[in-house]
Design a protein around this nucleic acid. Structure first.
Lengths: 202, 202
DNA sequence: CTGATTCTTGAGTAATTACTCAAGAATCCA
DNA sequence: TGGATTCTTGAGTAATTACTCAAGAATCAG
């Protein structure tokens, strides 16, 4: 009996993501969101409660999309270490092509808001932890496979990998050169190689 | 014959730094700056031209302070590689202690504004390049000393190191654990070790 | 069609924004 | 002290902010 909403929630979230991602949370006005989504202020507040409520839902969407992409990059790899190498090469490529880009919505938001808003800090913490755990799982299975030596520490190594992913999220806001990105990928692989099983050393 | 200013420029910059660093550029109002510096709006605009003009001067100050600190950390080290190791251990320690902190003003600003403001992007580019070059110099001298093998690439390695410094600037906004930071330092040192001269390998 | 329910509309609110400017205060050389 | 110069003051401006709410539109079961 009720009148159905005149918009698709996912579609609105997608359009809102574009604006938040391009301008940042603080610099995005509700007016911008009205323009981007086509919803009037009243509808936005009826559907999402507040600017922050909408943003939290945008972040959830973003985490899910990002993890799906990582899983896809991992899916076709011939080994666990190859999967990780692929992820880093892809990220480096994307970083090189995306000079002066919007970067990563999660990292941008972490630096802008985590310190001041606990809800957002928790949301981002969960998102990044899910990614880190994906890496840790791969490293653990690499150790189980004998790709990594028994002394390798998947948790510590995954933190190192996350650190380099995050570094590239910063770098893409600057002026990354091919030399720099090659150096980063090379450094990451060198650190992993140091934990490889002796019988696999070249 | 003129009336002298009633404030010390450096003192005002220091107080302004605190506010910008804590809140971010966009979230800092001129009213906040009036409160923090004790100057009235008119005096601020007479002395610095605009909010952005003041901020650019704040950034210059920040870069100089930061580089001075790095030089100091380098100064007492027994070797070039030891200097770099010290820098990373110090940064990791500071990151662990500064959970949920203000992070790094330069990185925060890079993510918030570099994409939208060329003046600020240039300022940050210069600041980070000066730091990277410090690292590159150390790596080059390490190669010259024989600490690193002849095939080592100081420019590429310095980019890798910068990437990890930047990663920690992101991490300190999240919830860094000792395990994570140990993993990062360990990974960085492992990558450097892979470039060491054969005769130095343990 | 009727009526119950929910959605949409957009003008409006009170607060905050970066910034200005004319008037007055303070300084120093003569 | 007189007067030229610069600094300080703070009320004020026009624009923008996140958000609200009452009225009207759209839907569907009966």
């Amino acid at each position: 009996m009720p009148r159905p909403p005149g918009f698709q929630r996912d579609d609105v979230l997608l359009r809102a993501t574009e604006v938040f991602w391009s301008r940042g949370y603080g610099a995005t006005s509700v007016c911008d969101l009205v323009e981007a989504t086509g919803l009037k202020p009243g509808s936005i507040y009826a559907a999402f409660g507040s600017k922050k409520g909408l943003f939290l839902e945008v972040l959830d969407h973003y985490h899910n999309d990002h993890l799906r992409a990582v899983d896809q990059a991992f899916a076709g790899a011939p080994s666990s270490l190859a999967a990780i190498e692929t992820l880093f090469r892809q990220t480096a490529d994307a970083t090189l092509k995306a000079t002066g880009s919007r970067g990563c919505l999660a990292v941008n938001t972490l630096l802008e808001l985590a310190q001041h808003d606990d809800d957002i800090a928790r949301n981002l913490q969960n998102g990044s932890e899910r990614l880190r755990r994906r890496l840790e799982e791969r490293l653990a299975s690499a150790r189980a496979n004998g790709e990594l030596c028994a002394a390798a520490n998947p948790e510590a190594l995954s933190a190192f990998l996350m650190n380099n992913l995050w570094g590239m999220r910063v770098l893409c806001k600057s002026n990354p050169t091919a030399t720099a990105l090659d150096g980063i990928v090379h450094g990451v692989l060198a650190a992993i190689t140091a934990s490889r099983s002796a019988r696999l050393h070249s």
